[in-house]
Structure formats: structure tokens, C-alpha cells
């Protein structure tokens, strides 16, 4: 059963196990430094589908099928699927997964959804409500652009603080028992807003939420950044990461040496289109389900804090001049389970 630590954190005493994982990416992701860690890469950004929305649904479906394959399971073995994406009403998830017949829990945490799904699934499994679940999220550059910004062919310039939505999905199978890695602790984030209104600077909008969640976790567990091999944020990018360091220093905690950001890992650092970094639900999900879990599998990393961050605005709230609230959910992944 989960044990509450402090106000925000749950210790998952039975250490839910990550049995398998899979990442699916598009052309640009296939040209990036993490390409070798992806399970499926497709040169065709439409994935052979008629619309960008169908392409994104396809990404999720492929990620789930591949992860199930690797675990030697079929959809009928899975008791719950925890999924989400960025599109209105989360249609990438519902349309992508509608044929699988798995009880579906739709989640929305913007780009924080992968960590949210890991936390919720971890609590379900730890509490004994399920022994086999799937977590999956996706994003697609083209479907996100047309919903949140401009048509693809529109000739505009991106600001230096803007981020590039990743075309990818990451999915994993969680089981009650197994060889690890394990989900040991989870901190559900609070909604934080320090008044950023620029929708082209989401790193800045999300950094306060990341700082709050990290502080809550350290306070609740009595740990420090040095207790972990790596603190990985979802998609703060260059600007958000710098602001996170400054916010943490403001509270007397130094994390820069232990920190990396999925948004800075997936594309080559010199890619001029990417500007401040990558973003999207699929960013943290695919980096986790390719690079990070591989590194945990070969014991290069043993204890990591995976914290995905989300900007909780809509096009309407931005047009109405509202500031952008952020949220960050954190899970502690480890190669050793609780004794």
C-alpha cells in the first residue's frame, strides 16, 4: 500500500515494476542523438495516415503494441491504460487506443502527462488495484502547431524562447512484480503560476511548478539532489532549466550538476529550428522510454527523479491575456526496490 510521506509524496511500498517500454518517433527524432534508443522511427511524418491527428493516434497505438510485445503480453492482459496527449479532448489517446478493449483512464497534464500517468498507475499497482497496466502519452509537431499556433506552411519566425513540439510517443508496461526498474515514490504537483503570459516561453511558465514539486519531494523524503544519479525534467528547455536552477538556489538547493532536461536531449544542440529546446507530451515520454530506461537497464543510472512539466493554458486563455499556470509531477525510479 502507498504510505504518505509529508504533505505531497507517496512511498509506493510494493515498488511497482516497469516490465517493458517502447518509444516511437518521427523523422526529426530519427536524426537526433537519441535515435538509436528508439524502437520505431518513421521517415514519413504522417505515418501513412490521412491527417496529423490520425498520425498521432498511430504513434500511441504503435508505442503500446511495441511495449506489450516486448513484455510478451497482449492487450487482454492489461487491466488499465493511463493515457493522455495535448489535443482537445485527448483524441490522440482515445482514437489510438479505442480498438484495444483495455479499461481507459484519460489523463491531462499537458506535457507533464507521462509522469502523471506513471504516478497514478504506480499508485493503482502498489495498492493492489491492478497488477498489469500501461502508461502512454504522445505529441505530434504538426497536430500541435495547427491547434496551438499557425498552419505549417505559414511563413512566420519563431522567437528564441519558443520550443519545438516532439513527434513521438512513449509507452511502458507496469507490473506488480519483476526485475525493475521500480517506481519507488511519487509526488503529485501543485499548480504554480508566477505570472508568465508569453505562450512562446513555456519553459519560464513551467519552471516554478518544477521547483515547487522538487522542493516538496526533498522536504517530504528528507533527501537531497546528491541522493540521486540524475534529476530529469520533461521539457523546460534552455530557458526553463536556467530558471529552475535560479529558483532552487533561491531556496538554497543546488541541482545544476545533477540535472538534465528531456527537451535538451532529443535534438542536436545546434538545430536552429528547435530554439530553446523540445516540448510536448511525447518529449519526456519518448526520452524516458528510450534513453533513460535503457540507461537504467544497463545500470549506468540507478536512481533517477523523473519530473515532467506541463503548461496548463489553452489558446483561449492565452488570447484572453491570462497568465500560464504550470504543473510538474515527479516519480522516483530506482533499480532497487523497497526492502
Amino acid at each position: 500500500m502507498p504510505t504518505r510521506l509529508g504533505k505531497y509524496t507517496l512511498r509506493l511500498d510494493n515498488s511497482p515494476n516497469i516490465a517493458s517500454f517502447a518509444a516511437v518517433g518521427g523523422k526529426k527524432e530519427g536524426e537526433g542523438p537519441l535515435a538509436d534508443f528508439f524502437d520505431i522511427l518513421c521517415d514519413d511524418t504522417s505515418f501513412g495516415e490521412q491527417t496529423w491527428e490520425k498520425a498521432e493516434s498511430r504513434l500511441q497505438k504503435d508505442a503500446v503494441n511495441k511495449a506489450l510485445d516486448k513484455a510478451g503480453l497482449s492487450p487482454s492482459d492489461i487491466q488499465y491504460i493511463f493515457a493522455g496527449d495535448l489535443l482537445n479532448q485527448c483524441t490522440s489517446s482515445t482514437y489510438g487506443l479505442r480498438d484495444m478493449g483495455i479499461p481507459f483512464v484519460g489523463l491531462y497534464g499537458a506535457c507533464s502527462t507521462m509522469a502523471e500517468s506513471l504516478a497514478v498507475s504506480g499508485i493503482f499497482v502498489d495498492a493492489g488495484a491492478a497488477d498489469k497496466t500501461v502508461c502512454v502519452t504522445s505529441s505530434h509537431f504538426c497536430s500541435a502547431e495547427r491547434q496551438f499556433r499557425f498552419p505549417l506552411e505559414y511563413g512566420g519566425q519563431r522567437t528564441p524562447t519558443s520550443q519545438w513540439t516532439v513527434t513521438a510517443a512513449g509507452g511502458l508496461v507496469m507490473t506488480k512484480d519483476g526485475e525493475g526498474p521500480y517506481v519507488r515514490q511519487a509526488t503529485i504537483g501543485t499548480i504554480e503560476d508566477l505570472g508568465i503570459k508569453d505562450a512562446n516561453n513555456m519553459g519560464a511558465a513551467m519552471a516554478p511548478a518544477a521547483a515547487a514539486t522538487l522542493q516538496h519531494f526533498f522536504e517530504d523524503t528528507g533527501t537531497t539532489p546528491e541522493s540521486f544519479d540524475l534529476i530529469v525534467t520533461g521539457d523546460l528547455g534552455q530557458v526553463g532549466s536556467e530558471l529552475l536552477y535560479d529558483l532552487m538556489r533561491h531556496d538554497g538547493v543546488e541541482i545544476q550538476k545533477r540535472h538534465t532536461d528531456c527537451g535538451l536531449l532529443i535534438y542536436p544542440p545546434d538545430d536552429k529550428d528547435v530554439k530553446a529546446g523540445a516540448s510536448g507530451c511525447g518529449c519526456s515520454a519518448s526520452v524516458l522510454c528510450s534513453y533513460l530506461l535503457n540507461k537504467m537497464g544497463n545500470r549506468e543510472l540507478n536512481d533517477i527523479l523523473f519530473m515532467a512539466t506541463g503548461a496548463l493554458m489553452s489558446t483561449t486563455s492565452v488570447q484572453q491575456g491570462e497568465s500560464i499556470p504550470g504543473v510538474a509531477h515527479l516519480v522516483h525510479l530506482s533499480n532497487t526496490k523497497w526492502q
Binding site: Q157, G195, N201, V239, L243, D246, A276
Partner: peptide
């Protein structure tokens, strides 16, 4: 305070 910090960190066009 955060706005000031953000302006320092965010690159301009």
C-alpha cells in the same frame, strides 16, 4: 522578482 529573472535568462530576438 521572477519576471526580472526571466528577462535576464530569456534571449531576445
Amino acid at each position: 522578482e521572477y519576471d526580472r529573472l526571466n528577462k535576464q535568462v530569456s534571449p531576445n530576438s
